[in-house]
Design a protein around this nucleic acid. Structure first.
Lengths: 191, 191
DNA sequence: CGCGTCATGTAATACGTTACATGATTCC
DNA sequence: GGAATCATGTAACGTATTACATGACGCG
C-alpha cells in the first residue's frame, strides 16, 4: 500500500492541510493516485502517531484554523526506503473493457447505448488531455534539465498525456468496431 | 463494483468452474480485471443465491468432480442492465509515478536503484506485449467482421497492445529523464 | 436567506489481501 | 518420493466507499 507514500511526496513538494491534500488528490496527484478526504484524514492521523509528519497550526482570516502538515525526518526515511523497494505490478480494473466484451451478449439497443457511452467517455478523456496540455504549457514552458523536481513532475505529466492520447486513439477503434457489428446478440452460450 | 459482471461475461463466453475462472483472471480477463480465487469463490456463492448462475456437476477421470457454472437468465439480465448504465470513471493507482516524483527527494544511490527497477518493469511490459502479440496472431489471424464476439475480444486486445506500447515508450522517456538528473536530492521542503 | 465552499471528521458496510487448510493426481 | 497442479474453501485483517454530521464564511 502507498497512500502514505503519495501523501509524503506531496507534502515534501509542499506542506499542506488535510483539506488541501484532498484537493490535490482531486487534481494533480489524482492523475496517478486517487484518494478521498476520509482516507486522507485517517492516514494523516496514523502518520502523525508514527511521527512521519508534523503539524503546524495556522490561523486564517475569517476561516477556522488549519493544521498544515509537513514531512518529518522519519517520514522522509520511510519514503526513501519504500522508493528503493521493488515496484509492485499494477492491479488493472478496466470497466469499459468488460462492457465492450459484454456487448457481444446485448442487442442493437444496448449496443447503441454503449456507443453513446463510449462517445461521452471519449469527450471526458479529450477534456482531460486538454487539461494536461494546458498544465504542461503553464508549468513547463521552458524545461530546465538541472531542476530534478520539475523534470520528474514533467515526465509523469508526459506519461499522463501519452496515456490519454493512446486512450483516445483506442476509443476511435472501439467506436469503429462497435458500429461495424452485426446487430444480433451472441446467444451461443445460452441456446 | 463489477467483479460479478466480469464473471458473467466470462461465463457467457464459456461456462467454467471456479478454478477455471480464477485461471482466466490470471490470463486473458486479467488484462483488464484482476481477481484472486478467494474473491471469485465468494462472489460465485452470492451469485448462485441470487440465481444469476447455475452449476452443473461434472465428473472427471481421476480428479474430484467440478462445478461448471453458467450464466442464468437473471444473470444475463443483470449484466445487460449494467452494460447500459453509465461507465464509471476509473480509479487510477500508478505506484511507479509516485516513486518517480518521490525520486526528487532521494539521492544518487536511490536514483540508481529506481533506474534498475524501471528497467525490470520495462522488461515485464515487453514480455506482456510479446504475449499479447502472440495471442493476437494465434486467436485473430484472419479477423471476420461478422463475428461480433471475436471482433469485440479483438478490439479489447488491441487496447492492451496499444497500452503496452505506450508504457514502453514512456518508460524509455522516464529512463532518459532519470539518467539526465543532477545527482543531488531536493531538500527545499526540509531545509 | 439559501447555496457553495472551506474544514474536519465518524460510522457502517463492502471489498480486497494474505495466510492457512485439505486432499487427490500427475509429472519428473 | 517430492513438487506442481487441480480443486475448493475458511479466517483474519486491512483498506475503500458511502452516507451522515457539523459549523463557519462568502456570494448573490
Amino acid at each position: 500500500m502507498s497512500l502514505e507514500h503519495a501523501i509524503l511526496v506531496s507534502l515534501l513538494e509542499r506542506p499542506a492541510s488535510g483539506y488541501e491534500l484532498a484537493r490535490r488528490f482531486d487534481r494533480s496527484i489524482g492523475r496517478f493516485w486517487t484518494a478521498t478526504h476520509q482516507q486522507i484524514y485517517r492516514v494523516l492521523k496514523r502518520m502523525e502517531t508514527d511521527a512521519w509528519i508534523t503539524a503546524q497550526e495556522v490561523g486564517q482570516d475569517g476561516l477556522p484554523d488549519k493544521k498544515v502538515w509537513s514531512a518529518a525526518p522519519a517520514g522522509r526515511a520511510a519514503l526513501i526506503s519504500w522508493l528503493r523497494a521493488p515496484v509492485q505490478p499494477e492491479a488493472v480494473r478496466h470497466e469499459l473493457a468488460v462492457k465492450i466484451r459484454g456487448a457481444a451478449f446485448d442487442d442493437e439497443v444496448g449496443r447503441a447505448a454503449l456507443v453513446a457511452e463510449v462517445e461521452r467517455y471519449r469527450d471526458d478523456h479529450r477534456a482531460t488531455l486538454a487539461g494536461y496540455l494546458a498544465g504542461e504549457r503553464r508549468d513547463f514552458p521552458d524545461p530546465d534539465p538541472r531542476d530534478a523536481r520539475g523534470s520528474l513532475q514533467h515526465v509523469v505529466l508526459r506519461g499522463g498525456i501519452a496515456y490519454e492520447r493512446m486512450v483516445l486513439d483506442w476509443l476511435d477503434d472501439v467506436l469503429a468496431t462497435l458500429r461495424g457489428l452485426d446487430p444480433t446478440p451472441d446467444r451461443k452460450a445460452t441456446p
